[in-house]
Computed example of a mutant assay.
Amino acid sequence: MLPQTITPKPVRPVPFAALMQTALSATEHVPAPVAAAATVGAPLRRTVLVSELATRSAANAVGTAQLLAANPDSRIIDELCEMQGAFAKQLWKIDQDWRAGLMRIYEGSLSLRRANTVSKVVEQDFNLIGQYGDLVTNCMTSVATLVENTNVGYSYWLAKKIEAAKAAAAA
């Protein structure tokens, strides 16, 4: 018997303003779930941390839109471009490290042809697998660190710019 297919319900489009308001509302409620999840297991903690990062990113997007709408200053846009350039430069370095690591693994795989016993082939195979695992771990850790640091740094920069814009408007 074939399993029944379930037709998904259509998703209603949400206006951009409502989406941003939801993101802002979500940022106000993050600390309680994060604090509550501090005692849970690793899988849930990982989910909470990723959710917190996504929430901070959404709040940054909303804050950026508000800042640029209220104060479209060319200096702010220049600083945004500089930050994007620095981020791209770091991603480029991570990519270069990834490619260099893959090349080392490839070169190591060529030496498998020189092995003359099964035990040496097995040893070299698992050595290459371990090297690949290390390369993936290092690359993913570097990307996650870059995203987290950029997100936190950008939040700080954005808060300072919003404060300055509010102070200028009040004066």
Rank of each mutant, 00 (worst) to 15 (best):
E52H: 13
V30L: 04
S142P: 01
A69M: 11
I94Q: 03
I105E: 06
K160I: 05
K160V: 07
Q90L: 11
I6N: 03
K160M: 10
L135V: 03
L135Q: 05
D78R: 15
A115M: 05
I76R: 06
L19Q: 10
P10F: 03
V136L: 05
A144F: 04
A54C: 09
L2V: 12
E28H: 12
V62I: 05
A59Y: 09
N116L: 13
P8E: 01
V143I: 12
K166V: 11
A70E: 13
F16H: 10
L49C: 05
A17C: 09
N127T: 12
Y106Q: 03
A36P: 01
Y132W: 04
T64I: 10
A36D: 03
T141G: 00
K89H: 08
I6R: 06
R113H: 08
M103W: 11
T117Y: 07
A38C: 00
V121N: 02
T150D: 15
I162H: 02
G85Y: 11
A65L: 06
M1V: 14
E28C: 06
E82S: 12
K161W: 05
L102M: 11
E163N: 13
G133Q: 05
T55K: 01
E82G: 04
T64M: 14
W92D: 15
Q124K: 15
T47Y: 06
A36E: 02
Q21R: 14
Q96E: 14
D134I: 09
V62W: 05
E163C: 08
A170R: 09
V14S: 07
A88Q: 10
Q90N: 13
L24M: 08
K93H: 12
A17N: 10
Q131E: 14
E28N: 06
E123G: 12
Y106L: 10
S74I: 10
V62C: 08
R75W: 02
L68S: 06
N60E: 04
P43F: 02
A144G: 07
N60W: 10
A168W: 01
R114F: 08
A115E: 02
A18S: 08
G63S: 07
Q4S: 14
V48R: 00
A100G: 04
T7I: 15
K89T: 13
A17T: 14
N149Q: 15
I76C: 04
D73H: 10
T117I: 09
R75Q: 07
P3Q: 07
R104T: 14
K89M: 14
L68C: 02
N151C: 08
N149R: 13
A159D: 01
L19D: 09
S74D: 11
Y154G: 01
M20V: 13
L110I: 06
A23N: 07
